[in-house]
Structures are given as structure tokens and as C-alpha cells.
Simulated scan of single mutants.
Amino acid sequence: MLDDHRYDELNDAKATMDHIYDHADPRAYFRELKSVGYQIPGAAKPVLQKLIELRQRKTGDTVHILDIGCSYGINAALLKHDLSIQDLYDRWAELGHAGATAEEIIEKDADFFAQLDQVEDIEVIGLDVAENAVAYGEQAGLLDRGLAMDLETKPLPQDVWPDLAPVDLVTSTGCVGYVTEKSFEELLPAVTKGARPWFANFVLRMFPFDAIAETLGKAGFVTEKLSQRLFVQRKFASRDEQEKVLEHLTEQGIDPSGKETQGYLLAELYLTRPRDEAAEVPIQRLLAA
């Protein structure tokens, strides 16, 4: 289990992109991330769609999703609409050259997403420390509710518990490492009050998941890793970043040969479900397709 200092060391190995995460609209975010081929939301989309389908089959009702590290509502945009990550790149690249203000971008995007066909029976709550990004996600109509808060340092407010009680699926696509077991400890009492959710976390290989798995395990959940499957997050921003990540992986006994050595940050899927459901259908069979 890593202490906070060790997590800081691992995060320091990655290129710093803090400057793009909390603008009033997503143009700078996508401009920067396009340069490094950021693609984890698109890579995760088919898996999350499958999990949503399975959850829908189980509940027979609207699937309520809590997306941790939601930023501008990117996962919500992909899951609610027939869009790819490239579609989003193209849209905000085009708007980025228009000289529009953030307010104009939000208005244009709200109209754009409202006119698209939307997948029925999905609601997404977004959780992120970036207040402006969360506000954009709500105003553009991507997030049904946005929670701008840092559960690593502050408790979950009691007044949001009713919003989280129906959650069927908790997701994250790359925030573990910044988000630790502390956030999950805060969320667990609320998301397990009225349901038994699943947790789907896409985690960079250099970040151990054991502390979060242990926290969820104490609440009666079992975590499985999808073996023989890796998901590209993005290209390394520099040779220096790659060398630091390779060093950390090697120190942890993780062989990067033929994987991160090829130039990409890679993530694994950890799926956490109630103990009885995990025993009934193991993850490899659940996601065999």
C-alpha cells in the first residue's frame, strides 16, 4: 500500500498538465491532449457500454453512473451519444479557431449536444476537483449533476447523499493516482446506501490498486483485473517522462517490455462487484466479447 509521498513520486514521473484541467471550456484541454494522442475515454467506451448494458439488464431501469475525475464530462459525452474521441477533438479544434468566448462555446455546445440522438436510460453524475470543468459539463448538458469537490482532503457533504444513493456504476478513466482510497472511503457509505453498485476503474499500470481494492473489500466487494488486456491512455509527452515511468514500473516488478517501451502510457481495468455477483460470473467471462 502506497503512502501519500510515494503517490507524489509516481505522479511526478508524468508530464505536468495541470494548466489545462480547469479552464471554462474544453478547448485548451483537447488542444494539449491531442498532441499526445490522449485516447483512454474512447478505449474505455466499449467496455463501459457493455457494463451499462449488464447493469440495465439487472435493474431494468435507468443506469445511474458516477464518473470520478470527470473533467469536462468527456466520458458522459461518449456514453450518451454516438461520438468518438476523435469527434470531440475535431469539434473543439474547429471552435478553437473561431475566437469565441467561453460563454459562447458553452452555448454552442449545449445546442450541439441537445440536437444529437441520446442513449436512453443513462444519467451521469460527474465528480472532479476542477470547478470550471464540472460547471461546463453541467451547462453543456453532459452531466446530469456535477460535484466539484476534493474528497482526498474533505468529507463528502451529507446533502449529496440522496443524489448518490441510486448509483449503479462508478467509473474512472485515469484519475487513480491522484484519487486514492480516501475518496472511495468517503463515497462508499453514500453509494451503497440504496444500491449495490459496480466499480470500473481504468488505472495506469504504475499505480497499484490494492489500497482501493482493500477499502472496497471491507464493504463486501471483490475486485478483479481484466487480464491480457491493456488500454492506451496516451503517448509519452517526452523521452524523459517515458524513462521515469519505465523506471517506476521496473522498481515495482512490472515488465514494460513490448508495452510502455513502445511509447504509450497503458492502463488496466479493475472491476469491483458485490462478492456474490463476482463469484457467479468471473470478469473474464463477463467481458469475454
Rank of each mutant, 00 (worst) to 15 (best):
V203M: 02
Q233H: 13
I283P: 00
D12Y: 00
V119T: 13
W161N: 11
C175I: 15
K182R: 14
D128M: 04
G263M: 07
E123V: 15
L127F: 06
V281D: 14
L230H: 06
L151Y: 02
L271V: 00
V179A: 03
V160T: 05
F30G: 06
D87Y: 08
G73E: 12
L33R: 13
T215I: 05
V47D: 00
E32Q: 10
D82H: 13
D87E: 12
E120M: 04
L216G: 02
K193I: 15
L142D: 06
L151F: 04
L147D: 08
L143P: 08
L216A: 07
P189I: 02
V232L: 10
P256Q: 02
L88T: 08
S238A: 08
T223N: 07
F112V: 00
Y29L: 05
D18I: 04
Q39Y: 07
E251A: 15
G137M: 10
V245F: 02
E243C: 13
L230R: 01
I105H: 12
L204R: 06
E186N: 02
A93N: 13
I283E: 00
D276N: 11
D121M: 04
R31W: 10
L147I: 03
E104A: 05
R91L: 15
R27K: 13
G146H: 04
D8N: 09
A190L: 06
V119Q: 11
A219Q: 08
E53G: 04
I40G: 05
T153F: 10
L286I: 00
L66H: 03
A28K: 10
H97Y: 12
R55D: 15
V36I: 15
A77P: 12
L246A: 04
D4E: 12
D25Y: 09
Q242E: 11
E9V: 09
H248T: 08
G42T: 11
T250K: 11
L10M: 02
K108Q: 11
